[in-house]
Design a protein around this nucleic acid. Structure first.
Lengths: 250, 250
DNA sequence: GCATCGAAAATTGTCGACAGTATGCAGCCG
DNA sequence: CGGCTGCATACTGTCGACAATTTTCGATGC
C-alpha cells in the first residue's frame, strides 16, 4: 500500500532549497567570510521573496554559518582561531562518543558505509584532489555521528561540522593529504576493530592531535590528558615527533 | 563613550519576544506535549502577524521544543523515553566537559554564582517547592555550561537543556528533592574542590546515575564505564544500593 | 583639516492578502 | 453497514508593500 518505491519526491519548500543553496555557497567559499548578506539581493539571486529567505537565514544562523545582528542584517560567519580551538574539544567529545557507540553496535551496514567513504578518501588523496578530499572527510565525520544512533550527537555534529567546514575551506592548502588519510584510516580501524572504550579514547585523541596540528597550537593543559600517548597520530610535521608533555591517562 | 552602564535596552524584536513567550508556555506545561500549534491562532494570541511567528517557530524547532511537519504545521515536542536516554549520554558528555573547564579555571565569580544557585536549590528543597526547585536546577546546569568558556558546550546545552526541561516537567512529581539536592551539592563540590579530570568524571557519573534512576532504566552496557563507582550518588530508592555491574574506569 | 550634524538612501522588521495543499465531512456505492 | 470519492473548510507557503531603523554621505562649524 505505502510502497516506498512509488512515493513521489515532493519539491522541497523554498526555505529548504534556500538553506541548501546558501549552505553550499558559504562552505564552498563562494560567499567570503564576513561578507554582508543583504536580504533583498539574496532573495533576488535565489528567485524567491524575503519571507522564506529570512527563515532560511535564521536556520543558517542556528547552524553557525551566518551571524545575525539585530537590525543590521546577517553576515557570513568567520570562526576565529579561538573558536576553532573550542570546536576541537567539542568535536573530540562528540565524535569520540559516536565512535564508542558504533564500535559497540558493530552494525555491518554502517561499517561498510564508513569503509566506502575511506575508499573515496584514498582515491582523492592519490589524485591530490584537495577539495574532493575535504568533501569526503566532512562526509566521513558526519556519517560517524549520524550513524551513531544518538540523534543528539548527530545534531551536535550539525553545529560543529559546519564551522569545521568553514575553517577547513580556509586552511585547505595547508592540509597534508597523506597524513590526514593515515589518521582517518586509524579512526576507521578503531571503530571497526576496537573495544568501545578504546575506540572512543583513540578517536578523541586523533581528532585533537590532528586539529591542533592544523591550527598550529599546543594542546592546552586543560584537556591534555584527552590525548592518549599510547596511540600516536601520524604527524604532519616531518621533523622529530615531540614526546607528549603529560603522560597520565584519566 | 560606550559605557555599558548607559546603554539602553532596546525593545526585543517580535521574533525574540515570541520565542521567549512560547518557550515559557511550552516548558511550563501551558501547551501540552503533542498539541498542534496553528500559526494564525498563535499569532493572534501574541498579537503579532504570522511572519515573525513563523521565524520564532523555526527557532523553537532548532531548539528541540517544537516539531515542524512539512506542510502540516508545528506541534509541541514530546520526547520519548528513548530520546531521553540518548539525551542523558549527551548531557553527561557536555556537562562533564563543562565541569572540567570550570574546575580548571577556578574563576571566583563563576564559582560563587554556582554557590548562589545551590543556595536557591536548598531553599526550594526545604520548602518543598517542586517547580521552583526545577527552575533552579535547570538554571544550575545551564550556568555550568554557559560559564565553561566554551561556546559550543553552551550551545549544546541549549539543545539538550530544553528537552530536559520538557521531560522534567512531565516527571516533576516523581523527583525526590532531597536526593536531587544531595547530587547537586556533589556536583558543586566537584567543580569547586577537585582536579579537572576528577570533576569531569564525577559530574558525568552523577548525571548518568541520577537521570537513569529518574528514567527507571538500567545504565546500558555501552556507557557503563562512564559511571565511576568510586563516587556513589545519593539514591532515590531507599532500598539497598545495588553494586555497580562493571567496575573498570577508563 | 577634522569632527559633528542632518538629510537621503538603503535595508531590516512587520503586516495583510492570495494561492496551493492538507484535513474533515457528507454522500455514494458495494 | 463499511469503505471510497469528492467537495467544503482550514491551514500553510509565499508574496508584495509599508513602517521603522540603520547607514551613507555631503554640508557645516571649529
Amino acid at each position: 500500500m505505502d510502497n516506498p518505491v512509488l512515493r513521489l519526491v515532493r519539491p522541497p519548500s523554498l526555505v529548504e532549497a534556500a538553506v541548501a543553496r546558501l549552505t553550499d555557497a558559504i562552505v564552498s567559499g563562494e560567499f567570503k567570510a564576513g561578507q554582508r548578506l543583504v536580504e533583498i539581493d539574496l532573495a533576488a539571486m535565489l528567485g524567491i521573496s524575503r519571507a522564506p529567505l529570512r527563515e532560511a537565514l535564521r536556520t543558517l544562523s542556528k547552524e553557525g554559518l551566518v551571524e545575525m545582528r539585530r537590525g543590521r542584517g546577517a553576515i557570513v560567519a568567520s570562526p576565529t582561531d579561538d573558536e576553532v580551538e573550542h570546536m576541537i574539544l567539542f568535536r573530540a567529545l562528540v565524535e569520540g562518543a559516536a565512535a564508542r557507540l558504533i564500535a559497540f553496535h558493530r552494525d555491518k551496514r554502517v561499517l561498510s558505509h564508513l569503509t566506502a567513504i575511506l575508499g573515496q578518501l584514498e582515491e582523492a588523496s592519490a589524485r591530490g584532489r584537495h577539495d574532493a578530499f575535504l568533501k569526503h572527510v566532512w562526509n566521513f565525520h558526519g556519517v560517524l555521528c549520524a550513524e551513531s544512533g544518538n540523534p543528539f550527537l548527530a545534531q551536535a555534529w550539525g553545529i560543529a561540522g559546519n564551522v569545521t567546514r568553514l575553517y577547513l575551506q580556509r586552511a585547505v592548502s595547508r592540509i597534508d593529504l597523506a597524513a590526514a588519510l593515515s589518521n582517518h584510516r586509524a579512526i576507521h580501524r578503531a571503530v571497526c576493530t576496537m573495544q568501545p572504550a578504546e575506540a572512543e579514547s583513540m578517536v578523541r585523541s586523533l581528532i585533537i592531535r590532528l586539529a591542533y596540528e592544523l591550527l598550529g597550537r599546543e594542546v592546552p593543559q586543560s584537556i591534555g590528558d584527552y590525548v592518549n600517548p599510547r596511540y600516536k597520530a601520524a604527524s604532519t610535521t616531518s621533523g622529530e615527533p615531540k614526546p607528549a608533555k603529560r603522560g597520565a591517562r584519566s
